[in-house]
Structures are given as structure tokens and as C-alpha cells.
Amino acid sequence: MAVARPSGSDHALLYVPGTSWLHRLNPMTKLVAVLWIAVAAFVLPTAGTIALAGLAAATGILAGAGKVFARRLAFTLTPLTVALFVVHGLLVGHGNQTDWFGLTVSRDGIAFMFHILGRIAALLAGSLLFVTTTHPARLLKALDSKGFPPGMAYLIASPLLLLDPFTTRARAIREAQSARGLDLNGSLMTRIRAFPALLMPLITLALADIDHRAQVLDGRGFRAVPRRTVLDPPPDSPAQLWARRLILISIPFQIAGGLLWR
């Protein structure tokens, strides 16, 4: 559609531009740290997961992403808290019941609620640390410069890049079909009958794109030589390399510790 769009669409939905210490960290280091947090979220006791989530959120605020953290955590945790409170605090027959503002609440149920909330908050805050401070383009360069297979980079980049054009195309197809008399707002049956008319062009066009793009990638020398040159790879340091190794080595201990203590 011939309407001016804002310059560049926003692929890095949650990315907050900045120059904090976290922003400057090599994406691989951050990726390994997220892995560590994910494992920790499952092995730590409730208090630990909540502390971890708090720590991650505090770091995020220091990195300038406070707004995103607040919004995402609130959007995810609020409905979850309500649901867990109703189901586990009130309905499911957990033991240790007590009276609370006229409601019969299970203490064990509440503990279970915090257990789940802590895990999810830690997981979410950890991943947010990564996505709010790492632009996908920088992640691609990091993967590239570490010699990861280019196919992997493609799997990350193309869904983000192609989502917009794909949505635009899907709308154009919907418009074209309704303008030729296809009823897209009718009963369920008419909608089901209309489905192939929407899906087929989308699929055939996507296949044509893939076919053509494969040729374009060949033409641009994709995989022509074993190792591609990466311009401005994200800086790395021996300290970060050792940090990553240490974190990776600690993960099995994390898991073992978690299993033994339980």
C-alpha cells in the first residue's frame, strides 16, 4: 500500500538501544548467561529464584530497560498470579488451610504459587536481559564470527525480517479475494470454504520466493568459501571467554546440586 512507513520497521521488538556494560558484552557471553539462569530457575528453591529474578530485573533497570522489564513482567505475571492463586490457593485441595479475609486459603497452595511464579519470573527476566540489550543483527555477527553454521543465523534473521512483508502480502491476498466476491465475514462454513483461496496464493508465493532467494544466495557467494568475513564482529575478550567456560562448566554442577538437595 502506498503509505509512508516510519523509517525501518522494528524487528528487534524488545531491544532498547544503549551503551551499557550489558549492551557491550559479547552476545555469546550473554547467551551462555541466559542458559545458566534458565537452569538455575529450575534447580533453585523458591527464595533463590525470586532473588535471581530480582537481580536480573535490577540489572535490566541499570541497563536502561526498566520500562520493558516492568511491562513484560507485569503482563505475564499478573494474570498468572491470579490464576495460580485461584486454582492452587483456593480450589485444589492443598493442605495447611487458613482463613484470610474471609477466604479459606491453603498455605501450601500459596507456596506452590510462589514456586511457579519465581521460576517463570527468573526465566523471563533472564531472557529479557538478553533481548533488551542485544540487537538481532549483533547476535548474527557474533554467531558468524564464532563459526556457527550460517543456516543457524538464517533461522534467526529471516523470520524477523520476513514477518512484515508476509503480513502485508497476506492482507493483499485477503483483499483480492474479498474483492472478487469471497465472503470472509460470513458463517463458519463460508469461512472454512474460503480458506484455500487465502492459503494457496500465500503458499505458492512463498515457494516462489524461496526458490528465487536460493538463487540469489548462490549468486552472492553464500557458502562459496568455508569461512565468511564478518565486519565489525562484537568485541570479545579473554575474560569473557573464561567467564563463558566457567559458566558452562558450572551448569552440570548446578543440575547435580539441584537434584541432590531436593
Binding site: 493483499a172 491476498i173 483480492a176 472478487r180 460470513g186 516462489a208
Partner: peptide, 23 residues
């Protein structure tokens, strides 16, 4: 009116035929 009703009176040939051909 619904677009699909108007289509009885108005016919549109869009720029990209690929976006409507599905048979």
C-alpha cells in the same frame, strides 16, 4: 455493504495476479 456484496457490481483487477490465483 460487505465487500463481497459490492463485488457483484465492482470488479477489480489487482496489480499482482499471483495474489488472487489459487485454482
Amino acid at each position: 455493504r460487505k465487500v463481497s456484496e459490492l463485488a457483484r457490481t465492482v470488479g477489480t483487477v489487482f496489480q499482482a495476479p499471483e495474489q488472487q490465483i489459487f485454482n
